[in-house]
Design a protein around this nucleic acid. Structure first.
Lengths: 222, 222
DNA sequence: GGGCGTATGACAGTTGGGTGACAAAAGTGT
DNA sequence: ACACTTTTGTCACCCAACTGTCATACGCCC
């Protein structure tokens, strides 16, 4: 069962949303202010949070920031008008998606589903690949619980690959994203991948996570 | 003949893209600003539009919105880094797909084709042909859930066929699209189709997916 | 059955990628 | 500023995997 928290000050809209979401099969709870919403989320975290941007007291942006500080819950913004500035700012504050009022519940529901499916995994605090754990924020990587010491380049490379878990990244793409080179010797990537493998693979000769796709590039998989 | 409009402010990138697309058989036109691009599209609409997100003056998002207002043309976003926010925002603004720089022209071309065929529906990550699953992003192909290991050529060949599911492709066309050869020995295609069949068909002798049309070419079917 | 188009196995040349060595560069502490 | 350590990028070499060609075998269609 999926729980949704709706933070919205307008009673009518909040109630309408809660009823509609309940109808869709969600467990719902509501909050009329950011403070109330944050408290609610701290006490009993929901799986999705909907936040109106225009709130009395602590506003929506700050609310998003605080929610995001504690938690990786998917946040969907409800915005009054579709003002690009507001939306960009909200996404920058850490929101994952937004809908514009008046809210079509079917659409909202679809987005919640999509968000949950897509998951915030890509930007989650700790990414897990079997016995490999990467916590980008803390700058730590563990293999079977054992803390590894990676160089900066290795770490960036790993993060880049982890951010695209399961997708192939070409040497070209890695050169650009990790090194910022527009052009350069692709063999550089090979060497660093090799070094990274020595550290993150229990058996570097046949890697289980950081795999090569001949002619395509590299991929990090679970 | 398919016309593509590229709206990108960086001269080098724009020119490179235009040349590459021309090479692929598209009619191309370029624009360095959103204004110029919008005007061009109004005067002489292209069949696909590529838009960079970072543009001087009117930015990419606004440009997409305005393009979408007048027209149903498929829009592909070119984004510098793959920042989830940017991409979500671009898709919200009305883009249909996106590619991340540095752009692999083959990939781009495939997406354009796919977009045109599917007509503005998002490009599926995984294509399914009965018990055969192709995930281009992950560089993975599965037969009955079992992961196959294809060579680069086999993979490209398969993708090319999959992008034209159900349509016959002549050896000539395949030579050109997969190998980039303007001319060459068509037997080469046979050999690789054969090798591919050994891997993707449960019964290579009478193929169910990758079928030969005597005198015409090959076809991948569901 | 004959002829043409297609499948396939073998082979040699080529390519792509892993790796260790090394020098330059960056970082660190005194 | 200096000496020392760590990290980074380049290079050369090697091997496994892949590619393209060819010869031969097969099978469809008239």
């Amino acid at each position: 069962m999926t729980a949704v928290l709706v933070i919205e000050d307008d009673d009518r809209i909040r109630l309408a949303l809660l009823l509609a979401l309940e109808e869709e099969g969600y467990t719902v709870r509501g909050a009329a202010t950011a403070e109330e919403g944050l408290r609610s989320q701290r006490v009993e975290p929901a799986d999705n949070v909907l936040v109106d941007l225009m709130l009395p007291g602590i506003d929506g942006f700050e609310c998003i920031r605080q929610l995001r500080r504690d938690d990786d819950v998917p946040i969907v913004v409800i915005s009054a008008r579709d003002d690009t500035h507001d939306i960009v700012a909200a996404l920058e504050a850490g929101a994952d998606d937004y809908v514009v009022k008046p809210v079509a519940v079917k659409e909202l529901s679809a987005r919640l589903r999509a968000l949950r499916r897509r998951g915030r995994a890509a930007v989650a605090a700790v990414q897990v690949f079997g016995d490999l754990e990467i916590s980008a924020d803390a700058g730590e990587v563990r293999l079977g619980g054992q803390l590894l010491s990676l160089t900066r380049t290795e770490f960036r490379l790993l993060c880049e690959l982890a951010d695209h878990a399961g997708k192939v990244l070409s040497r070209q793409q890695l050169l650009q994203r990790v090194w910022g080179y527009q052009t350069g010797d692709e063999r550089l990537v090979d060497v660093h991948v090799g070094r990274l493998r020595q550290k993150i693979e229990t058996e570097p000769a046949n890697p289980r996570h950081l795999v090569t796709l001949r002619g395509l590039g590299y991929k990090l998989q679970r």
